[in-house]
Each structure stands twice: as structure tokens, then as C-alpha cells.
Design a protein around this nucleic acid. Structure first.
Lengths: 230, 230
DNA sequence: CAACCTTGTAGTCAAATGTACTATAAGTTA
DNA sequence: TAACTTATAGTACATTTGACTACAAGGTTG
């Protein structure tokens, strides 16, 4: 049985990753250029085959790292895409994972399997193979909804950030201006942000207090019925 | 290639269905008793194998019908579960679908593969095989969230319903009592319900006004930025 | 019929929250 | 020091929420 060969793959099942990046008020998507295989030379979502001895979650992390050099990010499962003809020549169902990151935190490295890896502006995507266009659209609409109901935006800021940085991030994502005192009050009342007892440095104006986001605190709050809303 | 044999199955990939039912202010889940296979005699989520010539969505519908007789319902994909050891003896990743229905609309019929199919109260579930317990919990928490942010609960009521019926539905799903005057005020302010200009009949108390839900009105409201929230 | 159920519907009121401001503090730069 | 930038506090008002009361509209019971 295939399970006894740790590197054997499940050939009816693949993984694809939607890695969204946020930079200068612009949303980007990470694509790789395949060095081999059916869609050689085409830009596509980073993805590949699941091994028998790894979970789907682990496979997503491994494939992303191998193809792009991006590692240690929190990938969440979107859903699977299982139409009969989505992949040519054989039947493949794909499980799609996604994440939202800061592009400048990662150095792209195509590794062995991919010939190139690059960020593309969401409004300027090359033609994609298979059903990757559908997958991207499904992910995008999911992301827009999610960012308002869960604190995933914090990934996009430095570990320590000011309230104004946070506000500007949400203004960019939501596409509208927010009131500064009200925004800060709302955030502070959530008891979600941890004060770093520290201030900005080297700024040409009054330094703002720095805060950080703590997932443990968020988890504890949600257990008590708290829901993040912006 | 397996694809050339239409009935061949993808043996590393299964489907499971979470069919939630709502009856007498109680949330139920539909389980089947396996007539054969590893978990013979145990109650489990209805599920099975995907064929090479059918989409995952189609497979979910077919399996549900074969095992329970329940057909023509709108199944939505939850996500897949892909831990290495979730299934004994071989590596199987499962794609989970869910739906919310009115049990009295369906006659259960276990068909050939299952020996029995039955509704279980959500608070009174037998021990489940594999990771079905985890799947059920994931589905339940997804459902609780979804039902509060989208008007899917209306499927469970008759076309014309009273505000109290609607309230009882939400009390059952959310698992808590709601205040009657406040609930009605909130709903009425949404301008979502259409009054039928009609009252209940044959009730041994004051008859309540009947309302209906109109998807077109909901769609129009959401376009204008309205979001359903309970 | 009256007294008494049950359920429907309207209203009140205080607390919490949201929104649009103003004011002041703490730094930097010219 | 004056002007400027950003941080942070506070204020006033409208809206929403949550708990609760009151009353209306039937049917049922003695």
C-alpha cells in the first residue's frame, strides 16, 4: 500500500495556495511560474501534490515554502474545488489554502520546482491555467468579508504598531476614512491590543504608543463571546 | 487510467454530509448506520466515495440520496478534513458538505448501502467513528455563525410564518432565549419581511400576523449595504 | 357570562454604543 | 518662540440594545 512509501503522493488530490499580499494600499497575489509539468512556462497559483504521510495543512505549508521560499505563515483552508474537468488529462481535486501577508517580510525564492515566483497586482493578473481564476475570485471575496469580522489585518503590520498605522490599514481595506478618536476608543475597549510600554522613535512629531496583537488574548476573548467587528 | 472506468472511485478521497434539521425548536443531525465496511453497525455521517466521473458537489448529492433518500437540497461545502490518521488503515481525506433542512419534508430511506438512517437530537448523539465528532462540531459552529449573518434560517419555516415561529427558530439554533418585543422590533426595522395581510387560523389564542421572506428584497437590501445580523 | 388562560403587540427607560465634533498635550521644525 | 504635526482626552447628541411593563385579542373553563 502506498502509505508504506512516505514520499508517495495521492495523485487525485492537490493543494493550491492563495497568498495575498498588502502593500501601498494595493492587494497582491503570489504566483509561480512552473518549470516543468503540463502548464510549463505559465504563471499559476503555488501548489502541488499531497504526500501520504502528511496532513493537508502540512502539505500546503511545505509546497508554499518549496515553490516560493515563503514559510511560517498561517495558512487557512478555503475549500476544495472538485469539478470533473477542472484539470486536464486526469481527475484532480484541489484543496485551496489562503493567507494574507506583508510582501516585504518575505524574500521570494522559487527553489527547484518553480522557475520563478512573483507578486502580481490583483488588478493585473496574467491568464491562469485550470480553474485558478475561479479559485482566485472565490478567495478574494472570502478575504474581503473575513477581514472585517476577524483580526487578520494585524498580520500586515509590524509586530509593534501605532493606532494610526492600524487605522490607516483599515481605511485602505475598507476604502473609507475613519474618525481617529472614535477608532482608537473602539479598539481600546476591545481589550485586544497589548501596550508595549514603548513609543515610536525617530519620528518628526509626537511619538505614539506602540501596541501589539496577541492571538492568545483574542482566543480568550472569543471564548467569552467577543466578536471582532470593524 | 481510472478515469476511463466511470464507476471507479478515488480511494483517497471521500465525502461526508452534515444535514442539520430543525423540528420542534430542536436542532437535529442526520446519521446513517453502516450496513457494511469498517464501522459496521455504528452511526456515522452519511458519506462515501467520489467517482472519477462526477464532481465533488454531485457526489455529495448522490451519496446523500443513496444513503438516506434525502434529495434535491442545496448542499454547501464546509471544507475538507485531511489529517493523516483521521481514517484507520488507509489515508483518506474527506470533503464535508452541509445543509439545513426541515425534517418533515423528507422521508428517510436507508436504501441499499446503509442499514438505517435517523435524525438525532444535537444534544444526544451516539459515539461517532473517525473524526466525525470533530466534523460535526466544526459544522455546528459554522452554522451558528452563518445563521446569524445570513437569512438562511427562513428555509426552515413554512412560506408564511409568524414572528414567534421565527424567534423560536433562532432560539433553538443560537441556543438561548430571546426577548419577544425586542426581537420583533429588530426584524421589523430591517424591512425584510413582507406582511401577508393575513392571520393565523385555528389557534387557541390570539392569531398572529403572517409574514413571508422575499429573497429579491433581501438581495436589493444587501446591494444597498444592508447586512443581516441577529 | 365572567374569570382566566395564552399569545400578540406596543411602549418605557436606562445602559451601552456610535458619531461628529472640540480641546489639549507633546513633540519637531523653522 | 511660533508654527506645525500627530497623539490623546473629552464632550454632546443620536441610535441601538436589553430588560421589563402594560395592554389587547382572542380562546377556554366554570
Amino acid at each position: 500500500m502506498a502509505k508504506d512509501f512516505p514520499d508517495a503522493i495521492i495523485d487525485a488530490l492537490s493543494i493550491d495556495c492563495l497568498i495575498f499580499g498588502f502593500k501601498k494600499s494595493e492587494l497582491d497575489i503570489l504566483l509561480v511560474q512552473h518549470g516543468e509539468g503540463i502548464s510549463k512556462g505559465k504563471w499559476a497559483l503555488p501548489g502541488g501534490w499531497i504526500k501520504y504521510n502528511e496532513s493537508a495543512d502540512d502539505a500546503a505549508g511545505r509546497l508554499l515554502q518549496d515553490l516560493t521560499g515563503v514559510s511560517k505563515i498561517y495558512l487557512e483552508q478555503l475549500r476544495s474545488f472538485g469539478d470533473v474537468n477542472r484539470y486536464p488529462s486526469k481527475r484532480v481535486i484541489t484543496i485551496v489554502y489562503y493567507a494574507l501577508v506583508k510582501p516585504e517580510n518575505y524574500t521570494l525564492d522559487p527553489g527547484f520546482t518553480a522557475s520563478d515566483a512573483k507578486w502580481f497586482k490583483i488588478g493585473d493578473i496574467p491568464s491562469l491555467p485550470y480553474d485558478h481564476k475561479d479559485i482566485l475570485e472565490a478567495g478574494l471575496s472570502h478575504l474581503k468579508h473575513k477581514v472585517r469580522h476577524e483580526p487578520i489585518g494585524f498580520n500586515l503590520l509590524p509586530k509593534k504598531f501605532t493606532l494610526l498605522q492600524l487605522q490607516e490599514l483599515y481605511e485602505a481595506i475598507l476604502g473609507k476614512k475613519l474618525d481617529k478618536p472614535n477608532f482608537r476608543r473602539k479598539l481600546m475597549k476591545m481589550n485586544l491590543l497589548v501596550p508595549c510600554q514603548e513609543k515610536q522613535k525617530d519620528v518628526s512629531h509626537r511619538a505614539a504608543s506602540l501596541y501589539r496583537f496577541d492571538k492568545k488574548i483574542y482566543d480568550k476573548l472569543t471564548e467569552k463571546g467577543f466578536t471582532f467587528e470593524l
